[in-house]
């Protein structure tokens, strides 16, 4: 009986194999996208859309996996050997680090995709408790006595670096470009921070669920998500007089994609982010599309506030990174005792 069953099984397999092979051609490809924390929902929507488009175009099935975490921690994981085909991170220095420290991304990566490799942008807004009981309307209000500000640690969080630079940029403008006064403002701002979480999502939870602080500095997309999830009857968004253009960046991890033989797929995946379909998905997730037509369609959900880029306000990113967030940089000095 045993033998008969085995023979039957073998027959079944033999019959199925050619079918399987036909089904498997061309063989399905996989791609790993290593991304930062708040993009979970975004890429959960973009990945199936791309897989469909790619299969329609090439006939190849593709499986895209995404990994999320703090932007800096994700960059470090890639440097340490996480086999990412593409990275989609919160800010330029994190991909620069992968390029410079591990040589995995070719130098000049920002020139290979449109718009300096920035597929969608965001900005930094305030979230306050319903009715705005402390009357917080602009950056200056954050340092009033008795106001608690929730923001993560810029050393460990990409979003926190945008918060910090937005505050710095506003203070420069408000003080006629006086760096000492900008620094004094940012130092004062961090004296109002009762909890320094390690990541943006942590801060959102501290503010929204634990009820700490009076105002949360957040990515526009995270702010909208918090208000939607926690309820419009508890939280509201405040748009300051001016903020920063937060520019998340994307790149193919050249060495890994070449080793996996996924370069064409990886490049197509990133280029897909600039198509109207993907831009539409980005807009629906509260990322500002770089495609003006899509942005115009969603204009009502993106408050029209004056914004500045890091380059406008502070200079180029590597220098900003060193000066403000490097060891012994401005952020470290803010916490020196007696200052």
């Amino acid at each position: 009986m045993h033998i008969r069953r085995r023979a039957a099984l073998g027959g079944l397999l033999a019959a199925a194999l050619p079918g399987l092979q036909a089904y498997a051609q061309p063989s399905p490809a996989t791609l790993l996208n290593v991304s930062y924390d708040p993009t979970r929902e975004l890429y959960a929507a973009i990945n199936p859309a791309f897989a469909k488009a790619w299969q329609a175009q090439t006939g190849q099935a593709v499986q895209i996996r995404a990994s999320h975490g703090g932007s800096g921690a994700q960059a470090r994981a890639v440097i340490d050997g996480l086999e990412a085909d593409v990275v989609t991170l919160a800010l330029q220095p994190d991909i620069d680090a992968i390029s410079e420290r591990a040589g995995l991304v070719a130098p000049g990566w920002r020139g290979r995709l449109p718009n300096g490799s920035v597929p969608y942008t965001s900005t930094i807004l305030f979230v306050v408790r319903k009715g705005n009981p402390k009357g917080i309307h602009d950056w200056a209000d954050l340092v009033r006595p008795g106001v608690g500000v929730i923001t993560p640690n810029p050393k460990t969080s990409g979003g926190a670096r945008w918060n910090y630079l937005a505050a710095w940029g506003w203070a420069l403008r408000a003080n006629g470009g006086d760096k000492d006064r900008a620094r004094a403002f940012v130092a004062e701002l961090f004296k109002h921070v009762p909890v320094l979480d390690t990541g943006a999502r942590g801060s959102t939870i501290t503010f929204a669920q634990r009820g700490q602080g009076d105002v949360l500095l957040a990515w526009e997309d995270d702010a909208n998500l918090a208000v939607r999830r926690m309820g419009r009857d508890r939280l509201e968004i405040v748009v300051p007089s001016v903020s920063i253009v937060a520019e998340p960046v994307v790149a193919v991890v050249d060495k890994v994609a070449d080793r996996h033989g996924t370069r064409a797929l990886a490049e197509a995946y990133l280029r897909f982010l600039w198509t109207p379909d993907a831009q539409e998905i980005a807009a629906r997730n509260f990322y500002r599309p770089t495609d003006p037509a899509v942005l115009a369609r969603h204009a009502e959900q993106f408050p029209n506030l004056p914004t500045f880029t890091v380059a406008d306000a502070l200079g180029d990113w590597p220098a900003v990174q060193r000066e403000h967030f490097g060891d012994g940089g401005v952020f470290d000095q803010i916490y020196k005792p007696g200052q």
């Binding site: 703090g70 800096g72 921690a73 470090r76 440097i79 680090a97 420290r101 640690n153 050393k155 460990t156 921070v193 009762p194 909890v195 320094l196 979480d197 390690t198 967030f325 490097g326 060891d327 916490y335 005792p337």
Partner: peptide, 26 residues
């Protein structure tokens, strides 16, 4: 990490400082 508040000079522990150094590639 959840209960400390992680404020430098007040409630920052050495393991967090180590993680911070790693995030800076130091």
């Amino acid at each position: 990490i959840f209960i400390a508040g992680n404020r430098p000079m007040v409630s920052e522990i050495v393991p967090l400082l180590i993680v911070t150094k790693l995030e800076q590639y130091d």
